[in-house]
């Protein structure tokens, strides 16, 4: 089963994923249409900035077993058996706030979605887009490679191999030349360290 994989170290904080997520969940499904709707569609993915200025895209993990599914008293939150995606039926949601209490990743929010009715909002892994054969909107929008749509296990294997080769190359490189920055985070950490020493 394919899922959205988040790589926080690659995120540059452009918020394109949030915007495209909101567009994908709007009635019109177009950028211009979405911003002129009377009840604005809200994103299901959020980017937090840590005190070290690192970006952290946060979205539903579709846990198994899902604490929100267990906490939902109306069974508005359910798991689609075929894809394993945790979905939310907003018409059954009574806005009791139990899922926000249960979610350990703080991804459930409450917004009005139609006139005079509020309901919980969470990521649905763009199940409608997936049925059309497209990848989730946030993944399509991400140009930095921080959001990927793939099998978790396959991706982990690939990453392990990549890491192993990087370590090997790193050892070789370190012997030959001085250290370079392996990633944006390493670069930022280096900068922070320099700043700390200067002050």
């Amino acid at each position: 089963m394919k899922t959205v994989i988040v790589k926080p170290e690659r995120c540059v904080g452009c918020h394109q994923c949030s915007f495209q997520c909101a567009v994908a969940h709007s009635t019109s499904k177009t950028s211009m249409g979405a911003i002129s709707e009377s009840i604005l569609s809200k994103p299901r993915i959020r980017i937090y900035l840590s005190s070290g200025k690192e970006n952290f895209p946060n979205k539903c993990r579709h846990c198994e077993p899902a604490p929100c599914e267990m906490a939902c008293i109306t069974k508005a939150i359910y798991r689609e058996t075929k894809s394993g995606i945790v979905l939310l039926n907003q018409d059954r949601c009574i806005n009791c706030g139990m899922c926000a209490m249960a979610c350990p990743f703080a991804v459930v929010r409450y917004y009005p979605y139609i006139l005079n009715r509020e309901a919980a909002h969470k990521c649905d892994q763009c199940i409608d887009r997936q049925k059309e054969g497209k990848v989730p909107a946030c993944v399509e929008a991400c140009k930095a490679g921080a959001l990927l749509f793939d099998e978790v296990n396959k991706k982990m294997d690939e990453d392990t191999e990549k890491l192993a080769s990087l370590i090997y190359l790193g050892i070789r490189q370190r012997v030959q030349e001085p250290d370079t920055f392996s990633s944006l985070i390493a670069y930022k950490q280096q900068l922070n360290e320099i700043r700390r020493r200067q002050s």
Partner: peptide, 10 residues
């Protein structure tokens, strides 16, 4: 402020 509540519960 229910947003982060679940995180603290966990």
């Amino acid at each position: 402020c229910p947003e982060e509540a679940g995180l603290f519960v966990s």
